[in-house]
Structures are given as C-alpha cells and as structure tokens.
Design a protein around this nucleic acid. Structure first.
Lengths: 100, 100
DNA sequence: TTACCTTTGACAATATTAGTCAACACATAA
DNA sequence: TTATGTGTTGACTAATATTGTCAAAGGTAA
C-alpha cells in the first residue's frame, strides 16, 4: 500500500525537484511538505492538485487515494467500518442516480 | 433515507422522553440535542451510544449509519467519491484479513 | 568551509467544533 | 390570566484541532 505522500515523493524525485523547490513552487513551507510526504501531516486536496500539476501527472488517481485515506482515517479501528463503507456506497450510488 | 438524527428522534418519542429529559439523562444541553436530531450539528459516537442505551435499542445499526454519514460528509460533492469508497473498502478488507 | 539537502520540534496563529445560556413561540392545563 | 411543558434559535464563550512559521540540527558533496 503506497500512501499519497510516498507517491508524491516519488513523483517529485522523478520530476527532479528538491523538497525546497517543490515547496516554493506551490507556496508552502518546506517543513510542511516534508511532513506531508512522510504522512506526519495530512494533505489538503488543493495541495495534492498543485503538486500533481507541478509534476505533470494526472491527478485522478492521487485524488482518489487521498480521499480514500481520509475516509479510512475516520474509520480507524471502528468495528463496523466496513459496513459503514457499504452503506455509504449505496447511498452515494443512489444519490448519483437521482441527480442526473 | 433516514438520518441518524431522525432515527434517534423517533426512538426518543417512542421511549417517551422529552428533549429536555433525554438531554439531562445523557448530560448535555438540550439545545445541542435538538440541533443534533435535526442534523444541524454532528453527533459524536459517544452520544449515539448513550442515547441508544437510554432508549433501550441496539446501537449497531445506528453506529453504522452514524459512520456512514460521517464518511459521506467528507466526500460531499467529490467527483471521485465513489471510487474513493471502493479503494477504501478494498484496503479495509485487506487490513482485516491480515490482522487476525 | 560552503552550499545544498531533509528532518525535527517548539511555538504562534487560525479555524473548527463543542458547550452555555437566555429568550422565543407554541400548546395545554389550572 | 398564569403556570408549565414542549422544541427551536442565535449569540456568545471555551476548548480543541489544524495549519503555518521558524530556527536549528544532521547529512552529503564540492
């Protein structure tokens, strides 16, 4: 399982950016980016998108993983986490249908 | 779709509690309970459990719906919400397996 | 040394959430 | 009428969590 942070770290390195350069480019403190890549702090969706753009990568997969991590964080150690996800899925599907 | 708040309101009425009585019983301000039942404020899991106990109801379904609502709240209007849920589900299943 | 790199922790600023309280409107009974 | 009980509302404070800032440390390489 590769976290969004580690994915973005790989992408950064492949794109040839140092932490500092990347941080400056998206206008945040280097300490924050360092912590985010290592999972010590949570990303915001906005930053994920900015970084994806900086690294010239499609952001869809990253956003999906970002959201998934967010959700799993909410459900950590919950006995009924899986059941909750299934209910949520059902309701989201229902909502999508009656929307379009 | 019945929210946790409305479910708990029904349960309260069936159990014969006024808002005030129920609020006192679980030691919160009546204003908060009123808002929670109507979805104006989020529940905490702790309060859901306390109310379920007060109303002598099994809490499993309520907790599942509570968590589901929490998750859906995180995903509101996200283009890839459904995909994120699926990824989260997969990872949770995987985790559960390698746990026991 | 100098110049980068990343990590770390302490701290401040900000935003979010939770809790408190008084007042309101409505209904009903005395 | 007055009193009592119902639920709702909004303003306010308090507590907590999240974010941002900064300086310093340790590593590596020229």
């Amino acid at each position: 399982m590769s976290t969004v942070g580690l994915q973005l770290r790989e992408l950064r390195e492949k794109a040839g950016f140092s932490l500092r350069k990347a941080a400056v480019a998206i206008d945040i403190d280097v300490a924050i980016l360092s912590k985010m890549e290592r999972g010590e702090r949570k990303f915001s969706k906005e930053l994920v998108l900015k970084l994806a753009e900086l690294y010239k990568t499609n952001s869809d997969r990253l956003v999906i993983d970002y959201l998934s991590e967010k959700v799993l964080y909410e459900l950590e150690d919950e006995e009924f986490g899986l059941e909750a996800l299934k209910v949520a899925e059902k309701q989201l599907k229902y909502k999508k249908q009656n929307e379009q």
